[in-house]
Structure formats: C-alpha cells, structure tokens
Design a protein around this nucleic acid. Structure first.
Lengths: 196, 196
DNA sequence: CGCGACGTTGATTTGCCTCAACGATTGTGG
DNA sequence: CCACAATCGTTGAGGCAAATCAACGTCGCG
C-alpha cells in the first residue's frame, strides 16, 4: 500500500513550519490505513488507541444510550480529525463508536507515538493547541444553537455550513447530529420544497 | 492592591513545571484585578481583550439573541478560565457577555502578552493544549447530554457535578445554562421535594 | 428477485414553553 | 429606618414544537 502523507503535511504546514527532517520524523510516527464502509475504528467500551486524520472518505462518532438510541456526536470528512478524545487521553474505555460511512483512507497516530511526538517536536503542542481552540469554539456555538434555535433553523444552518456532508450521509444521521428525529427532518424537507 | 499570583502558579504547576525565572517572567505578563458584582469584563460587540483566570468569585458568559433572550454559555468559579475565545483569538467583536456574579478577583493576560508568552515559554503551548482538550471533552459531553437526556436528568446531573454553583447563582441562570425556562426548573424542584 | 435499509406520511401524545399574576426577599434612597 | 422598587421564585392555564408509534413506498444490493 502506498502511504501518501502529503495531505497531512500540507494540513499541518498551514499552522506550523517544519524542517524536512522534522517532517520525516513526524511521518515516521504515523500509520496509513484503508478502512471499508461500516468498519469501526473506535468501539464503545474499548480504549481509543489512535487519533485519526481523514485523508479520504467519511466517518461519524456516535453514542448509544441505555435505551439503544444513537446520538451522532461528530462527522469527520477529508482533513478532519476524529477520535474519542477522553478515551484516548486517559487510555480508558471509550464512550463513542467511530464508524466509516464510506470506504476511506486514514492516517493514525497512537498514544505513545503522540507523547514522543510532543517531546521531539514541541511545535506540535502549538499545532494541537490551535486545533483544539478552534474545535472548542465550534462546540460552544453548537450548544448555543441547540438551545436558542428551532430544529428548522439548525437544519438550514447545517446544510449551509456543511453542504458536502448533506450529500454523503443518510438523513437519519444528520437528524441525530442536530438533535431531532428522522421523521421530523423528513417533514422539514417537505415544507422546504413546497415553499422554495 | 496586593497582586497574589500564588493561585495561578499553583494551578499552572499542576500541569507543567516552570523554573523560578520562568515563573517571574510569566507573572510579569499578568494583571491582577478586582471587579465588582454585575460588572462586565467582556461585552458583546466589543473585542475580548483578555483571557481571565478566576482567583475568587464567580462569572457567567452569556449570549443574547435577536429577541433579547439570554443563554448562559458557561459559568466560571475559582480556578476556572473564562473569555470569549473566538473573539480573543481572532481579535474581532465578541458574541458573548462575561459578567461578574459576585465581587471577584481575577488575573488577566492580553492578546499580545499571550503571544509573547508562547514565544518565550513554549511550555505554555502544552499547558493550554491540555486545558483546551479537557474543555473540549466536557463540551462534547454537554451536547450529548442535551440531546439524550430530559431536562430533569440534566438538572440532577448538574447539581451533582457542580454543587457549589447551585448555591451561588440564581436559578434562572442555571435553567438557562441547562437549556430550559426558570418556570420549568421551579416545577422540577417542587416535584423533587414532594418525592424525596 | 427478495430482503433490508432508508425515507415518507398520518394520527396521536407529550415535554416543555408562554403568558400572566402573585409572593417573598433584597437593596436603596429619602 | 421605613417605603418603594426591583429582582427572583412560584403557580396556574393554555399552547405548540417535536416525539412516538405505526404503516407504507422505494431503492440498492446480494
């Protein structure tokens, strides 16, 4: 299999600057993988072993509650990161599943390599600090949204912000991500077409 | 005014190790302030100038929508950080207000000092990376909670997790933080006492 | 071709909201 | 030190957004 790290190097390079030597060291910690649709890369109850960078394809992280109901926590497309972060950082059993929604190609780094990476190239602290700050801001906005807006407003906001996702994942997962039922999303969409 | 930086140094020291010289440099970037109850340290529409560490007292960050309705985004008690992070990082107008709920004492660092701090003591990248990772995890759990649990469950979870907050802030702010109305919280509490 | 996954539609229910009125407490200025 | 206003919590009646449950259509895939 050809491990092409150009995408992640480009992505990292937009935030921090690495020498050729550092790039080589960085990629030596990485593992390139292909996973098939419906395959899980994290399982609820098992320790999340890797941080995952999506090169190609699509994933969802989701939670299953006591009643067996699914809640989509996050989608991850090209150039996004996905993991059960709490599980990864504390090396304890995961709360979420992470599942491939398409045949995908990913780049992974495990816990020990991550520690080593921070030690050998401290700039990655800066990189992930900035990444986490951005992710935090988005999550905060999502919470305010979920309390201050109607289901319809959140749906319109979503398809405007992530038009690519809408095309690629089943509607019931989008409904779950937005915090309502697939039936209700169906009705929203029907109203849309009758009006617009 | 006596600027006592021991609380923040202890807090930082739990995550990274600093030499005495670095501690001195760090505190030279900081500013100690007292603020009175009802005072705003961030205003919607104005650039958020500082990251704020709470030494003593209590704050809330909140959003006001087009209809004038308030949404509490975050509480901050002793040893917590608070800011409008997006506004601070991008130096653009804030979405949130941050208001003191008690007479408080805080430690602040402004944007330029923050940049300088990262440059002169790179370990602070590690510090804030870890801080943001933890905050991210908590926010993700809050989103799942808001979709998977009833108002009552979220309330019970909240008073169990943050018993100190319940004692110190008005109920209508807690209701807002949890995403429902003060009237509904009142009814929940009435049921509680009739049952327990 | 047949089955399972997904989306749609209808009827009914419910969790929580809105609006309004009313105590209780706190704080403040005369 | 009292009167008055403002703030906060409570309670009731009625309403609505979204959920639930169930049935049915359809498409893609083995």
């Amino acid at each position: 299999m050809t491990a092409d790290y150009s995408s992640i190097l480009e992505y990292v390079g937009r935030v921090i600057t690495l020498s050729d030597q550092e790039k080589a060291l960085f990629t030596s910690f990485l593992r390139y993988r292909k996973v098939r649709k419906r395959q899980y890369i994290v399982q609820q109850g098992a320790v999340c072993q890797h941080e995952t960078f999506v090169v190609k394809g699509c994933f969802r992280a989701f939670y299953i509650d006591d009643h067996g109901k699914e809640y989509v926590v996050q989608f991850a497309l090209e150039n996004w990161w996905v993991a059960d972060l709490r599980s990864f950082l504390t090396q304890t059993p995961a709360d979420y599943y992470v599942e491939a929604l398409e045949n995908s190609e990913i780049i992974q780094i495990d816990f020990d390599s991550m520690e080593e990476l921070y030690r050998q190239i401290p700039q990655f602290n800066t990189f992930f600090r900035i990444l986490m700050q951005r992710a935090f801001i988005v999550l905060q906005q999502r919470i305010v949204s979920s309390y201050s807006k109607t289901a319809e407003e959140r749906y319109l906001e979503f398809i405007k912000r992530y038009p690519q996702i809408e095309q690629r994942v089943p509607q019931y997962m989008i409904a779950s991500y937005l915090g309502f039922t697939p039936e209700f999303l169906s009705r929203l969409r029907q109203q849309q077409t009758h009006r617009g």
